[in-house]
């Protein structure tokens, strides 16, 4: 399989940061109450991850042993701060809603893990691709999680879309049902929903196990977090 295809498969499925590596749980669980907030946080994480990976790949020859981790965190924190400022300038109302969690992207271990495990030992193109696919893997899981929790916990879908697209999107909110399950909105519901998604993924993997056995995989992927 060619490298870009295997990278995509790794990020989106086999070594998905949210479903397999179980990294970045803090933002994953805390922000996934509605589809729109989840999607927004996912996109910002994706952008930060691509940029951080790119920069870390470019400066890899200066990542001396003693200062490697602080330097990587410095790069990630700089990217997150920049994203936070830009979001306040461009999506002010959305920032009002989830701004608190933007800063927490720094502590999303997906970023440090990809810097440490991948970006610092690979050339620029591969590092960017890795950031993109890992970011996309995080994005689809958090969006799905947000969608499920919104439908079950609130009975709506696409609530708050106007914060991204302007007031015209106010009417796009779908009301699915009117008997919300409160627990899905709260923290335990986040764990339960994610747990079910992980179980579902594992179930699907077992069904395809024979096919998977032949696939080349990143040795890190096999290591349990």
């Amino acid at each position: 399989m060619n490298p870009s295809k295997s990278q995509a498969l790794e990020g989106l499925w086999q070594n998905n940061p949210a479903l397999v590596q179980l990294l970045g749980l803090c933002p994953l669980l805390a922000v996934s109450q509605t589809l729109v907030t989840s999607f927004t946080l996912g996109v910002i994480t994706l952008l930060v991850l691509v940029w951080a990976n790119a920069i870390i790949s470019l400066i890899q020859r200066w990542l001396f042993e003693d200062i490697r981790l602080p330097l990587q965190i410095l790069v990630i924190a700089t990217m997150v701060t920049a994203a936070d400022q830009l979001m306040q300038a461009l999506f002010f109302e959305m920032h009002q809603r989830i701004g608190l969690f933007i800063a927490l992207i720094v502590t999303n271990c997906t970023l440090l893990a990809r810097a440490e495990l991948f970006a610092r030992r690979n050339r620029l193109g591969l590092a960017i691709a890795d950031g993109f696919w890992m970011g996309l893997g995080f994005l689809w899981v958090i969006t799905l999680l947000g969608g499920i929790r919104e439908v079950l916990g609130r009975g709506t879908l696409l609530d708050g879309l106007s914060l991204l697209l302007g007031p015209s999107a106010d009417h796009w909110t779908l009301v699915i049902h009117t008997s919300p399950l409160l627990i899905v909105t709260l923290a335990p519901g986040a764990f339960l929903t994610l747990g079910l998604l992980v179980a579902l993924k594992n179930r699907m993997d077992i069904a395809h196990e024979s096919r998977q056995a032949n696939r080349v995989s990143d040795p890190i992927a096999r290591r349990k977090p």
């Binding site: 200066w62 200062i67 602080p70 330097l71 410095l74 790069v75 701060t81 830009l86």
Partner: peptide, 22 residues
Amino acid sequence: KPAALTLVVAALAAALLIGFIS
């Protein structure tokens, strides 16, 4: 030491970038 120098340079670069954006 090169490591220390790198960290100083990186911190300055980061501060400058954030400064400009801000």
